[in-house]
Design a protein around this nucleic acid. Structure first.
Lengths: 229, 229
DNA sequence: ATTACTTAGTGTAAAAAATACACGTTATAT
DNA sequence: ATATAACGTGTATTTTTTACACTAAGTAAT
């Protein structure tokens, strides 16, 4: 516990809920802590905000340090400020989420020493988490459940080229319910933000599906219109 | 500027966007500052979070100190963390909004010395605001614009007994557009969360409208259902 | 009491969106 | 050739949304 100038005795941290999709399951990135408190526990990746960076910049830096990824759409969703949420002092944590494309060309960067390892974990079978991270994560899940209805978050989880069935899987996992295939396709195509490619899926052991791309340009033209994916 | 233990050199403040409705206009509560920085400027009411209170508790305390009101639904909506948002040091501000019933029985409490006065100001004609408060306010407006579609925020602005026309006015002011009277009434009544009273409006110079009450019990039963006011 | 005024209160038809629902097609693997 | 497993498609029904205009009722002034 630290005692300082009145009013300037808080620390501010960032915690990131990084969502990933491996084709089957919704995952989040966890680290195994190598330091007290909560040594050996699983936790959300996060770190303290430096004095000379904004909270948003800090989130970008931390994401980069942990994953090597930059230029990722990352959104703040809540500030957690209970008195005893951190055993070593008064730490307010600002939570962000991001949707990451898993697999392929972007292996996770080696972590700083505060973590033994980082691992993608199925959201449906999480270990016990350090601090109030389960709470932070729950709130993050709630947020994306709401936001995926209005924002094209699903495509950020998917590879550049994807099938409609994959898009549907992402929606089903995040919303936690099955959707009707024909109705889903009708709706998602009605926004005209997906471009059908000539190309088909490869390396699958049955009939290959048509690939699509998210057309960011067309999406941006919709700005301001209320759409519901 | 203060220099302290590494990591524990931030202050955290609360800023409140308090919405009010006077029957005609959407208002927010501003204070005129009596202290530097920004002495004599208009600002959102706010204050520093104490070390021994949670951020939510702090918001409740500050609202109470400024208005005398307790037990108000208040919702955090964003944390503002730019480096230079406060000229005297690194202050992260967590913003909350609340909807207040104006007029009648609840005069504003005398303010602490940091403000010369507090005043309800029409959202459509605001003075220049201190710090990044215009930005905080804009984001607050955006939030309630989205949230009023799913949450019964409008009734918190209105007196206990209100007319449907008043409800419609609140929606029109917040959404910034005119709504069709018949369709609005059809829709708002379709949720069955308003109770029609025997009573009529009093003291109006033309035909008196029927009064309604918001039925919180029935609303709570809808929990989880996706409703769109 | 008549009249003028202002807001309250109401219904329907058309269009759009959401839902429920099942089977033939196609690429792969054996 | 055949079996397999996921792909891809259409229609009818219901629900929701939208557009649209007049009569009713209470007040105030003469």
């Amino acid at each position: 516990m630290t005692e300082n100038t009145p009013g300037f005795d808080f620390a501010v941290s960032i915690d990131c809920v990084l969502f990933g999709f491996d084709g089957t399951e919704l995952k989040i990135l966890l680290i195994e802590r190598n330091e007290d408190p909560f040594k050996d526990w699983w936790a959300l990746p996060g770190n303290l905000v430096n004095n000379e960076e904004s909270v948003d910049q800090s989130a970008q830096r931390i994401l980069k340090e942990l994953t090597g990824l930059g230029d990722i759409y990352m959104e703040q969703y809540y500030a957690f400020g209970d008195v005893n949420r951190h055993p070593q002092g008064r730490v307010i944590s600002v939570a962000y989420y991001a949707m990451l494309r898993l697999g392929g060309d972007k292996p996770l960067k080696p972590l700083s020493s505060y973590a033994k390892k980082a691992q993608w974990v199925n959201v449906a079978s999480l270990p016990k988490l350090a601090f109030d991270h389960q709470h932070i994560l729950n709130k993050g899940l709630e947020k994306i459940k709401r936001r995926i209805k209005h924002l094209p978050l699903a495509f950020e989880l998917l590879p550049e080229k994807f099938t409609l069935t994959q898009v549907q899987s992402v929606y089903e996992l995040i919303l936690g319910k099955k959707l009707d295939k024909r109705n889903f396709r009708k709706k998602i195509l009605s926004f005209k933000v997906l471009k059908e490619l000539e190309e088909k899926q490869r390396g699958v052991s049955f009939r290959a599906a048509t690939l699509y791309k998210f057309d960011k340009r067309k999406y941006n033209k919709l700005f301001g219109k209320e759409i519901s994916f």
